[in-house]
Deep mutational scan, measured.
Amino acid sequence: HNGKLCKLKGIAPLQLGKCNITGWLLGNPECDSLLPARSWSYIVETPNSENGACYPGDLIDYEELREQLSSVSSLERFEIFPKESSWPNHTFNGVTVSCSHRGKSSFYRNLLWLTKKGDSYPKLTNSYVNNKGKEVLVLWGVHHPSSSDEQQSLYSNGNAYVSVASSNYNRRFTPEIAARPKVRDQHGRMNYYWTLLEPGDTIIFEATGNLIAPWYAFALSRGFESGIITSNASMHECNTKCQTPQGAINSNLPFQNIHPVTIGECPKYVRSTKLRMVTGLRNIPSIQYRGLFGAIAGFIEGGWTGMIDGWYGYHHQNEQGSGYAADQKSTQNAINGITNKVNSVIEKMNTQFTAVGKEFNNLEKRMENLNKKVDDGFLDIWTYNAELLVLLENERTLDFHDLNVKNLYEKVKSQLKNNAKEIGNGCFEFYHKCDNECMESVRNGTYDYPKYSEESKLNREKIDGVKLESMGVYQILAIYSTVASSLVLLVSLGAISFWMCSNGSLQCRICI
């Protein structure tokens, strides 16, 4: 991952900044910058967002509201009850120091605090018919004063009620008058409520006091790749198909172990950190130390980045220098085999997901714990399936590479015959000098055995068991695999060879 928040398929997220979902939807004055928000790819909250409900109280069923919003990608904020005409018999300019803005008392931008007009609070009834052709999110509140005197001074009615009804919602609220500790300079409380109004449905408000009335509502448009994440990451000019709280993932790998919460087309989250597919040879310690064997393909974004291909070729060293050249036929066979294998694994496992966190309130801790156990169970199954699949494929890959290298080895052996000696570690020792032209003939299969047989015969008789390297004779190393990324691999195959001279070296080696 890149540690950044990015656009998702070209669409920017909605960053709530210092506000949370509650503050944004109710219209906390400190969240005025969010009022123009219309569309987004996903919503970003920060872990310690401080601006929620400015007048103390709870947004009821907040967790369910977050779940609903996680599939919303755009909205239209509109005046559901026009301020100047909807409440002619009531005062609608209630403000509070708890919702101060720029040093002055204020109130929510989407709600109206209705109080008595003169000395009376006549029963009010108002309704709205949803003609938007889509779901409408309606929010309101109920004020709970701290004393009967406060109730009387604001609403005149000691036994007030609030009723809200639609086809799918029907509740009646009565204020709970009680002494409470002071929070944000208030002994009173406000509880906030919401409902989704279906197209064509009607919502009716009736009250004799204590109503925090809707002013603006939201017509919602769903987008199934949307979601809500909690993150401290910063926004950058970048684009992605998959976003996590820790950063964007741009990967076609089937798995990731970065974060379980994802938005967009994302690899499946697994616990494993070692889900690797081999593309090189079986481990040979001396070669492995030099980083030549054991190439791997990573299938977990965050564990290993991208696929690494092994390729086969020849390396030689003689009086004229040293050089490398790919054996294109065996390399292409290996590439085709690995590509098919990788595609097979991805096809089997690479279903892209959006995974969002589930919200539970403080009273639902047991449910949250149960949900976590269920999620953990599914996660263990996914991890096991992934590891088992790759384990089985790896064994076949190792066998496949062994065969490829063996074929190259036999190709060289059949040409050199007794003009060189096998020394048991995949290397041959020449009994004759071999210049670049000679080396090329070994690589392309045109090695002239009779041409060098007499010199080889004489050297075999002279050496008589002495280690060949100390006599200045020449080696050919018969097994060799270097490691390159897919891009470098293609470039390498396009070149005939490249040279690395070893000044004054008397050794001649050709490596497979």
Rank of each mutant, 00 (worst) to 15 (best):
G321L: 11
F428G: 06
S322T: 11
N425T: 12
I284S: 14
E393S: 07
G494S: 06
I300R: 05
E237Q: 13
N436L: 00
N333D: 14
L489N: 00
S486D: 03
N419L: 01
R276G: 07
N350A: 14
G291N: 10
K372N: 14
T279H: 06
E469Y: 13
G504R: 12
I423Y: 09
H316M: 15
H401E: 08
N444F: 11
P285A: 12
C511T: 03
L487G: 08
W499E: 05
D402S: 13
H259S: 15
Y449M: 08
Q256F: 04
Y312W: 09
R290N: 00
F353Q: 02
Q256D: 04
F400E: 06
T339I: 09
T244R: 02
I479T: 13
D448A: 12
F378Y: 10
N404H: 08
N436K: 09
N239C: 07
N343P: 00
S272R: 02
R282C: 06
Q507S: 12
N343S: 15
Y314L: 05
I287K: 15
E359W: 05
T305N: 07
M277C: 10
W304A: 00
F293T: 04
L292G: 00
N459L: 11
T383D: 09
G280I: 06
S492P: 05
G247P: 08
Q332R: 03
N425F: 05
C434R: 13
C501R: 02
C434Q: 07
Y384G: 06
A233G: 00
E437H: 14
N503Q: 07
L275M: 10
E440F: 05
I287N: 01
I296G: 02
H236I: 06
K241Y: 11
E422S: 11
S470F: 12
S441H: 13
D435I: 03
G357F: 09
Y447N: 08
E237A: 10
S414Y: 06
M500P: 05
Q352R: 15
T262N: 09
C427G: 09
C238G: 07
I296A: 09
S456N: 00
K457C: 04
I423E: 02
E368D: 10
F299N: 01
C508I: 13
P267H: 00
